[in-house]
């Protein structure tokens, strides 16, 4: 098959006036994206009164005192541990649920694939927060309120359809012959899945794990409703709490914001390819 030439190829481009207009618009948009964040970083090194006087002034010193103080006062240590627990349980539940269902929907070997596809397609489009009230009372009844692991699983279930369809696209790329060959050699479905298929789709699993991790780390509605006790707060809720109790000390808020932003940006830069691939494959129509 002759490969189609796509826009991914680089081309020589004349540097016209239009080119420079385009570049300046792109740079302006980048500036808008980063402006509030840059301002926060700048002010995180300043004292409360310095920020009040002029948010654009340069800090007198670049000490990490604000960060250390904010980390302790905001109890970010427990917050991040809770976030990690919650995200881990969401990733485990989400990856198990989406990879198994993604395989079933991709192979279409049982008749239930059609109603299941329709169900999960519908579940993408239903405003899930409307089902939160019974979930809340179920959590109270089962004494799961404040249980970060349980909330992590709930977040995974809420966000299940997108990972399922994403996994499905990865399973579709697995050559069918490979599976048949293993079957002839006497492997059962479990072996086929774990020994033959999973190694091939493992990049897809990492991508799905990244996307689920992003959802659950940033989740607000379920965590704020189901984690009522402060000891169970995730990092995002700790920061929200800090904003409520320390709203008069701007240096604490700024340092707290930097503490929230930096880990996320670092993880993103590290796994950038996976995040972008996941988002694009989840939404782009072939």
């Amino acid at each position: 098959m002759k490969s189609k030439r796509l826009l991914t190829r680089s081309r020589n481009q004349k540097k016209t006036v239009a080119f420079w207009i385009a570049v300046s618009i792109l740079c302006l948009l980048a500036l808008i994206s980063l402006f509030p964040l840059a301002l926060v970083v700048l002010n995180s090194f300043k004292s409360h009164t310095e920020i009040m006087l002029n948010p654009f002034s340069w800090p007198t010193s670049f000490s990490f005192h604000n960060y250390v103080y904010t980390w302790e006062i905001g109890k970010f240590g427990t917050g991040f541990i809770n976030s990690i627990k919650l995200t881990a349980s969401a990733i485990i539940a989400g990856v198990i649920g989406s990879s198994t269902m993604g395989y079933v929907l991709a192979t279409r070997r049982v008749k239930t694939w059609r109603p299941l596809t329709l169900y999960f397609m519908l579940a993408t489009t239903v405003p899930l927060q409307m089902f939160m009230l019974p979930l809340y009372s179920t959590f109270v009844d089962l004494k799961l309120m404040g249980n970060v692991y349980a909330v992590g699983v709930a977040i995974a279930a809420w966000n299940l359809p997108m990972p399922i369809f994403l996994m499905r696209t990865y399973f579709l790329k697995v050559p069918f012959e490979l599976e048949e060959a293993a079957r002839i050699d006497g492997a059962n479905t479990f072996h086929v899945l774990t020994k033959v298929i999973m190694p091939i789709v493992s990049p897809g699993i990492i991508t799905v794990a990244c996307i689920i991790g992003l959802f659950s780390w940033n989740e607000y509605l379920l965590t704020t409703t189901l984690l009522k006790n402060e000891v169970n707060f995730t990092a995002t809720l700790k920061f929200l709490n800090l904003n409520g109790t320390f709203s008069r000390d701007f240096s604490v808020i700024m340092a707290g914001a930097v503490i929230m932003v930096i880990p996320m940006v670092l993880v993103f830069l590290l796994l950038q390819k996976r995040f972008i691939e996941g988002m694009a494959n989840g939404a782009v129509k072939g």
């Binding site: 649920g97 989406s98 198994t100 269902m101 192979t107 999960f120 709930a154 299940l160």
Partner: peptide
């Protein structure tokens, strides 16, 4: 295949 459908059905069924 039916067993493989169970985790997602259980998750979505109980929480959604």
């Amino acid at each position: 295949y039916h067993l493989l459908s169970l985790p997602a059905i259980f998750l979505s069924g109980s929480i959604v």
